[in-house]
Structure formats: structure tokens, C-alpha cells
Design a protein around this nucleic acid. Sequence first.
DNA 1: AATGAATGAGCGTTCATTCAT
DNA 2: CATGAATGAACGCTCATTCAT
Lengths: 188, 188, 188, 188
Amino acid sequence: MKDSIMEQSIQLFAQKGFKETSIQDIVGELNVTKGTFYYYYKSKEELLMDIHLQYIERLLENQEAILADESKSCQQKLHDIIFKLIHDIEKEGLRAKVFFREIRHLSPQHLEHIIPKRDRFKENVQQVVEEGMRNGQFRSDLPPDIVTLGILGVTNWSYFWFQPNGEKSDREVAAIFYEMLINGIKAE
Amino acid sequence: MKDSIMEQSIQLFAQKGFKETSIQDIVGELNVTKGTFYYYYKSKEELLMDIHLQYIERLLENQEAILADESKSCQQKLHDIIFKLIHDIEKEGLRAKVFFREIRHLSPQHLEHIIPKRDRFKENVQQVVEEGMRNGQFRSDLPPDIVTLGILGVTNWSYFWFQPNGEKSDREVAAIFYEMLINGIKAE
Amino acid sequence: MKDSIMEQSIQLFAQKGFKETSIQDIVGELNVTKGTFYYYYKSKEELLMDIHLQYIERLLENQEAILADESKSCQQKLHDIIFKLIHDIEKEGLRAKVFFREIRHLSPQHLEHIIPKRDRFKENVQQVVEEGMRNGQFRSDLPPDIVTLGILGVTNWSYFWFQPNGEKSDREVAAIFYEMLINGIKAE
Amino acid sequence: MKDSIMEQSIQLFAQKGFKETSIQDIVGELNVTKGTFYYYYKSKEELLMDIHLQYIERLLENQEAILADESKSCQQKLHDIIFKLIHDIEKEGLRAKVFFREIRHLSPQHLEHIIPKRDRFKENVQQVVEEGMRNGQFRSDLPPDIVTLGILGVTNWSYFWFQPNGEKSDREVAAIFYEMLINGIKAE
DNA sequence: AATGAATGAGCGTTCATTCAT
DNA sequence: CATGAATGAACGCTCATTCAT
């Protein structure tokens, strides 16, 4: 039941927004009453926190599994991170939308637990970039933090337009973005 | 007064969100009463619409001025579009935040007027990309629509992190992004 | 202008009700502003009072002209009163609707001036009934006050259904009501 | 509680009118809060609809019980209908007042359910009148629809003046009206 | 584990009215 | 005569939350 509530609320939060979704909306779809909700969650915000936490932790886990693989080059790692992110839109897209858009509804105390993980996500990417610069796989004349933000812009933005069942597959889009970021769009 | 209300509400919508900002919040800061608000705006949503319209129209105007300049190469145009977007964060950043984040609160009728302009903004960038591919300034083995979405990801995302008074200036960030997109980050 | 405002407001009060009609509704149709309204009327209620007063006074005048005509029998007077009331629906129907339905929005002070006139209207009819009973034109075994209320029920109710351009003319309807009240509906 | 709310609101709607009665007025008298009101009714208008529906359905039921009694003559049926209506003023008078006066606050969708029943009420009376004309109990030289409207005028209007504890009883008033309608007020 | 009744604070909106110009 | 700006009180309604059962 607790999971059903979360699943349902992710659907609704992604579709209509946190504020725009009432507890009644959530439990109505599950054919239970509001009391039930409060049996499982202390408050609406706690539910939102749970969603955030679950999302970012799963994301970090995935990402750090890629980073830990010593057999991969930095270019390979970058490619895999990009692909993983876009691939996950199908499964995790709604969660991601909620994560990006509704974070502001978390209380300061809750934010304290989320922000560092969100930062670590960015730093992990930056680490790959920096490592690549150090070992000569990436050019080293660009500041790694801005480059990282550029890369994250490309991937994160895709959560707002990528359609898993659209014209291009996740693999194709990831390949294009990787190619574009690695080699640029200028003609020889 | 009408302008004061809009200015004030942009501040608050950007900071707290549309739903989270009450009419009272807006007029309270201006030391007038709610009645005054409704003297100038038919509804809260109409105000939001006005903000959206003003923002996107100004944006398009700027962008199309760049596109219309025949003395510029495609590379130059792309650079200028990127720079303009990041440069405007200082003046227009709050408006942009509202535009990106609160558009879902517009009614379908209002959306009808905004969406085509938002699409035109994207298509204008895509036009530059396609023209560059045709005339050999850009490589032509990548799909122009996905490339365009990548570029827009880089710039749009910067609205969520770029600090006009931060370490790097708008000119520097734009230059880095341009360089990264044009030549890629791979070492020679 | 003062008259235009009254005319317009009678239309609207009859159509939508007093409470449901805003000052803005009234002046909007006349293409002037609310300030203008308050130049001519001290308040919305004063306007309503004026409508009531004008209506009831005109009604009484008409009615008392009939009563004063000594050449008429009581039956004739009764017929003329009924006919006049139904005939006036075309010209005065909207005013009458407002009078019947919106009187409760008058303040006690204003009511003090209306109620006695409204009562006089009823008493005038009752006077005809009583006179007819005394002089043998009407049967005298029924209480004149209840009979009068019956007659007024028949006529007043017609304000809620009589259509001046409908199947039956005012003259026909009045004749039917008169016949029905005078001779009853029982077969010989 | 749902019934208490309806009872209370009938009192207030009859006394002050629908628009003039706020939700706060209703719940204040019951010492509960506005939230409670909306726990039981979706909107103020839905409450009004419930009142209308309950009233007209009860009325029709009563009326059709009289009509169905084959042992009664048309005259008897007409008398019983008149008596029942006036008798009910004590119990149902407030509901009736609300029904007559506040019907315009129902939405078109709601009206669709009420109007046919209101029409049926009138047609039931007309049916008695027509049957009586056919079988010779009533004179047949008057149009039955107008006669019916006359009868309904007499009875309905009594809802605006009849006092259950007044000088005349319901039985007496009904008898007078019946006599007046059947035999007329003309002296022999 | 779940329900149903109730709360209370807040919100968007309306509107009669005032008043300086 | 008329306007336009502003007010302030009220209203219908929503909703997260509580709690006894």
C-alpha cells in the first residue's frame, strides 16, 4: 500500500504538480481514504521527501557503478553516464520530473539531506571530466566545472522533451549527444 | 502600478512559485490591497499569461534580430544566440525561470498563444544549425533537431545555476559553451 | 442618464436578480463608469427603492382611477382591475417582477414607505369585493379578505407565466379569469 | 448532520434568500465549521438542488396519490389538491418559498431535472380539470390550461401570505378557495 | 489497517462604495 | 458630469491534517 501510494503520487505529481495534487487525488485513485494516507506517511511533504530520496539514491548508485569500473576509459564512462540518464527516462522519467520540479517544496531540514547528494551527482560527472583532462583524453583548456554544467544541461533537458516511444531511441539520442559533446559540430 | 505588480510578482513567482504566491503576497509588498490587483488584472492567471507573453516576445525579437543579420556566419550567429541567452539571465533570469517552470498553470486557451512562439524559438535555432550544415560550416552527419535540443539544453539549463555576479562572466560562460559545442571536448 | 440607468437596471434586475446584477453590469451596458452611477444614485439600494416606488405609485394611480369611476358596477370594476393588471404585463412586467421578487432587499426604512402602498393596493381590491357584497352583486357568504387574496393570486401569478406575444391575448386571459372568478367552473 | 444542514439552510434561504445566506451563516447556527459543510455538499448550489428535488418529488407523490384514487370525483380531487397544498404550508411552506423564489440559482443542468417535474405538477392539475370538463362535472367553455393557471395562482400565492397559526385554518381557507373556484363569487 | 467526520487556515475573486481630479 | 484608482469586507471553496472508532 505504501508503495502504491508513492507510485500513484509520482504519476500525479509529474502530471499536475505537487501543489496541484491533493491527498484526495492520490487516495481516490487507489480507492482508499485519506486516513489511510496518514497511516503510512506523516505528511504530504514526507512523501515528497521519500520520492526525492529514492530517486537520487538510485541515480547515484547507478552512476557510481559506472565510475567504479576501472576497465573503462573516461570517454567510455562519459558515454555510459549519458546513455544511462537518457535510458532511464522511460522508467524514471516521472520521478526525475518530480525531482527537478518539486524540490522547492521540501523543507530546509529535508533539503539538507538531498542537496549534498544532488551535488555529488554533479561532482561525479565533473570528476570524470577532470580525470579525462589530466590523462589527456579531454582537452584541458576549458574549465571542468562549466563543461560539466554544459553536459548536464544536455542530458537533464532531455527529460523535458525525450519521448521513449518517439522517432529516435534512447541509444541513438545518447550517441548523438556523446558525439556532439566529444567532437563538436564544426565541419573539418 | 500595473508594472509594479508584474515586477513584484515575477520576483515572487521565481522565488516561491506561482501557486505558492498568493495575491496577498504580491500586493502586500506594494502596500496596496487585493482589490487593486483585480483592478489591473482579470485574474492571477492573466497576470501569468502577461508575463509569459512579454518574455517570449522579447526573446523572439532579440533572436530574430540576430538571425536577420546577413553579415554574420552561422557560427557567429550561434555564438551570438548563446551569448544573448546567458547575458540576459541577469535582466531576464527571473522571467525565464517563471517561463520555464510555471507554464503549466496557463489555461489551454492561453497556451495556444504561447506554445507556437516557444516552438518558433527552437525552430529559429534549428534553422541556423541546418543552414550551417548546408553551407558546410557545420558537420552534416548529425540530425539537426537533436543537435538543436542539445544546444538548448546547454543554454536553458544555465538559467538554473548561472549567477550573474559569480566567478565567471556571461561572456566567459558563453565562450566556453560555444567552444565546447563547436569543437567538442576531445583532445586532439 | 438617470432614467437610462433605471431602465437598464430594471432589465437586468428582472433577468438576473438584484444581488446578481453588479453596478458594473448596469453601467457597462450604458458605456459609462461606476462613478457616474453614484453621481445619480446614493446607493444601489436607493435605485431599487426608486424602482419600487415608481411602480407601486403608478399601479395605485391606475387602480384608483378605476375605483373612482362611479358609472361602473362592482363587477365591471373587478373586470377592469384584472384586465389592467394583465394588460400591464407587457409594459410593466419587468418592473412587476422586480417588485415582487426583490422587495426583500429594501432596508426597513425604505420598506416603511412601500408596504403601506402595497397594502392599499390589496385593500382597494377588497373594497370593491366588499362593496359588491353589500350591494348584492357578489355573494356575501364568503370572507372578503380571503376572496381578495384569491383574486390577487390569480392575477399576480400571471406575471410568472403570461407571455404578451403568446397564444392568448391579455384581453382573452382577463376575460377567462373574470368569468372563472365570477361564475365558477362548475357545470350548471 | 447532512439533514441538519439542509434544515437550517431552508430556514435561512426562506428568510433571507439564497444569495444573501452565506455558508458561514448556515454552519454558524449549527456550531460547526465551513469544512463540515463541504464534507456533505459539493457546493452551495448542490444543496439548493437537493432542496428543490426533495420538495418537488414529495409534492408530486402527494398529488399523484390523490389523482390515482378512482373513488373520487373530479370536484373531490380538485378540493383535495387545493387542501393538500394549503395544509402543507405549515410543514413545507419554507421549502415551497425556496422552491418558488430561488429556482433561478440552479444551473442549467440541474434545471433540466427540476423543470419537467414542475411541469408535471401543473399538468396533473390540468388533467383533473380536463377530465371534469369531459365528464360534465366542470363547464367546458373555458380553456383548461388558463383555468389551471388560475387555480395554481390562487394556491401558490397563498404561500406568500398564509399563516398556519393565523385567524383562518388551512381547512377553512381551502374550503373558501374551492367554493370560490367552483361556484364563483357572483350572487345568484 | 482503515474509515469518516470535523477542523481551521488560507486562497482567488467579487463588489459596493469612496474620492481626488 | 464623469473618470479612474483604490479600498475592505465578504464569500465560496479547497485542503492538509487530526482523531475517535
